[in-house]
């Protein structure tokens, strides 16, 4: 009798525990998602309702005018094109250079491996700082050019180490048998190692591409010509500094929208590509984060 009673308590305790867990997590999920949802619904609501401030869960007075105006703004198109240019060229350069650095360091028979490992790893802890790097880039006459955006972050030492660890997992016997067939190290790297490392290369591409897409400070620091601005810098001008001008003057001349519509539409448009690749991002990034942990 008593035993049954105890069991009953533990069962209701269990159920209560489950309910509390699910409720807390649901609330957390809601808090995370709601700000983004809010931006989306306000961007497609009417000016009248925005001014009244009565939008809470669904758009009111459906109105896509803001998106039309954003799409008509050439400045935004240009910034988008710049971001794509920086992201594609920057990422390609990064993945290639990172692999070129990681492969020799992954070879146990590489003479000089110790010193070069220290040479690269040291930069994770010590740096010249913001100003000396700026002076280097200035002295190389890279200010206001694409090079200032894509060259300084060309190798992330952390990513390089992750890649090296991944290369180390490939059996060295593969390279040795290729030697017997007369291949040299560059051929082995290009024809054996890289094709076997598609997963890590994909992860690295995503790592670097997202960083480039979202990067704002280097562009703000090194670019001074508005025609070269990427989306993130233009967005700062629009959303935070409240710059409402397009190439043809004030964009909020339309009576049907308010500045808020326009700002939120710009935010949504900048986020769309990230949301599109999000399922891949989640999968590969999670793997990337745990890559070292699993090996340890």
């Amino acid at each position: 009798m008593e035993k049954q009673h105890k069991k009953l308590i533990s069962r209701t305790g269990n159920a209560l525990f489950d309910i509390v867990t699910y409720v807390i997590l649901t609330v957390l999920g809601f808090i995370t998602l709601y700000p983004m949802w809010y931006i989306l619904i306000v961007s497609v609501s009417s000016a009248q309702h925005i001014n009244l401030g009565d939008i809470s869960f669904w758009p009111r007075g459906l109105n896509f005018e803001a998106y039309k105006i954003v799409f008509e703004n050439e400045k935004i198109w240009r910034a988008y094109a710049n971001t794509i240019l920086y992201t594609v060229s920057g990422t390609a350069l990064q993945v290639i250079l990172t692999a070129m650095c990681a492969y020799p360091l992954s070879r146990p028979d590489f003479y000089g491996r110790r010193i070069l490992s220290i040479f690269t790893t040291l930069t994770m802890f010590i740096s010249g700082g913001m100003i000396p790097l700026y002076l280097v880039i200035m002295n190389l006459h890279m200010i206001n050019t694409i090079w200032a955006i894509i060259l300084p972050p060309a190798i992330s030492t952390y990513n390089m180490i992750v890649m090296r660890t991944s290369f180390q997992a490939i059996p060295h016997s593969l390279a040795e048998s290729a030697y017997l067939d007369g291949a040299n190290d560059i051929q082995i790297f290009a024809k054996i190692i890289l094709p076997l490392s598609k997963a890590i290369l994909a992860t690295m591409t995503l790592f670097y591409a997202v960083a480039h897409w979202n990067s704002f400070f280097p562009a703000m620091l090194y670019l001074n010509d508005q025609a070269k601005y990427p989306v993130q810098v233009l967005m700062r001008d629009i959303i935070i500094s409240g710059d409402m001008t397009g190439d043809t003057g004030d964009v909020t001349g339309s009576l049907n929208i308010v500045a808020t519509n326009y700002k939120y539409a710009v935010i949504i448009i900048s986020m769309i590509p990230i949301l599109f690749v999000y399922p891949f991002l989640q999968k590969h990034f999670t793997k990337g984060v745990l890559l070292g942990a699993v090996k340890g």
Binding site: C101, T120, G128, I131, L135, V136, A154, I155
Partner: peptide
């Protein structure tokens, strides 16, 4: 000599580290 192709591979990354990491460290003298 045996590793010469590996050195060829790592040459550009080394140049990168020198210009964008070690030159700024030297730049601290300003």
């Amino acid at each position: 000599n045996k590793n010469k192709y590996l050195y060829a591979l790592i040459a550009l990354p080394v140049v990168y580290y020198i210009i964008f990491h070690y030159a700024p460290m030297y730049g601290i003298i300003v």
